[in-house]
């Protein structure tokens, strides 16, 4: 059976691959949305922090002999800690100012971090292998599906769900949401709002680093690996509604699929299509899909 001149199984395979890429978009936009939702800062360092996650995984392996599973836990903690330092030293000073200042600061920091890594490690990338437990592939009739890609989708889905649950259903999440609405009042109840903001930023950064560790075995680990993604992920957050976690996650997976199909029918446009969708969504619904107007 053919659909639009492409055999149906092949098309199905492409949707699946799109979903896998969407998992990365969802995971990255999740951190971006959490940070924007709680801190009102558009974190353009996110791509660099994603890259740092992958590099820390490599360093742990090369310098300390700690493999993939350890890195999956440690790299987000380490990179999250650098995020906390950055928040305390710099970003915290900008909360009262216009969004633009936070955007410029984080964008600049991202460029600096990328430059430092490029100076130290070069541009062509470092090798990082798929862990033994996740090597191999399933031979679905219509395509060859690496086990590791299945793992990525699963983990990304679980992470997204967990983050959503923490923010929407737990006490700590309710504090966070309350602090976003009215920080002075929450502070008056004896909750340390600045510390909560710091930890939220750290957690958002840790999510980016986690995605970086997931990416290390399948993408070339190089300093510019995050800068290609951050623009797309930013579009995802805008389409999903700035600060809406559910919106970002759904948009992430959805855009992955749209991009995947574009790669079959007209690959030349595969990086443009996301921005076409963004423009259309903003024209039709200025508050975006699930955003607050």
């Amino acid at each position: 059976m053919d659909l639009f001149g492409i055999p149906a199984p092949l098309l199905f395979g492409q949707v699946l691959l799109g979903l896998i890429n969407g998992a990365f978009y969802a995971l990255l936009s999740l951190g971006l949305a959490v940070i924007f939702g709680m801190l009102n800062v558009i974190n353009f360092t996110h791509g660099a922090q994603f890259m740092m996650g992958a590099f820390v995984a490599w360093m742990l392996l090369e310098w300390l002999g700690i493999g993939y599973w350890g890195a999956l836990l440690l790299a987000p903690l380490i990179v999250g800690a650098t995020g906390i330092i950055m928040e305390r030293l710099m970003i915290a000073r900008l909360y009262k100012l216009d969004h633009l200042y936070g955007l410029l600061l984080t964008f600049g920091l991202g460029l600096i971090i990328e430059g430092l890594f490029r100076n130290e490690f070069g541009s062509s990338g470092l090798p990082y292998r798929i862990p033994v437990e996740l090597q191999g592939a399933w031979d679905l009739d219509f395509m060859f599906m690496p086990v590791y890609r299945g793992w990525v989708v699963l983990v990304a889905f679980v992470m997204c769900l967990a983050t959503w649950l923490v923010i929407e259903k737990t006490k700590i999440g309710s504090y966070l949401r309350a602090a976003t609405e009215n920080p002075a009042l929450v502070q008056a109840f004896g909750i340390n709002v600045p510390r909560m903001m710091t930890l939220t930023y750290g957690a958002g950064v840790a999510l980016a680093a986690f995605a970086g560790v997931l990416a290390a075995p399948i993408y070339s680990v190089n300093p510019q690996m995050g800068s290609n993604l951050i623009i797309i992920v930013f579009a995802v957050v805008v389409i999903g509604g700035m600060g809406s976690i559910l919106g970002s996650v759904l948009t992430g997976f959805g855009l992955g699929i749209i991009e995947g199909l574009t790669k079959v029918f007209y690959p030349e446009a595969s990086s443009t299509v996301i921005f076409v969708v963004m423009a259309l969504v903003l024209l039709a619904r200025p508050a975006a899909l699930l955003g607050r107007s």
Binding site: Q14, M143, P267
Partner: peptide, 17 residues
């Protein structure tokens, strides 16, 4: 398959094609 340069990171779709 002609892909956009330099903004492409994932080539799995083209590899499957």
């Amino acid at each position: 398959a002609r892909y956009p340069f330099p903004s492409t990171t994932d080539f799995s779709s083209f590899i499957v094609q």
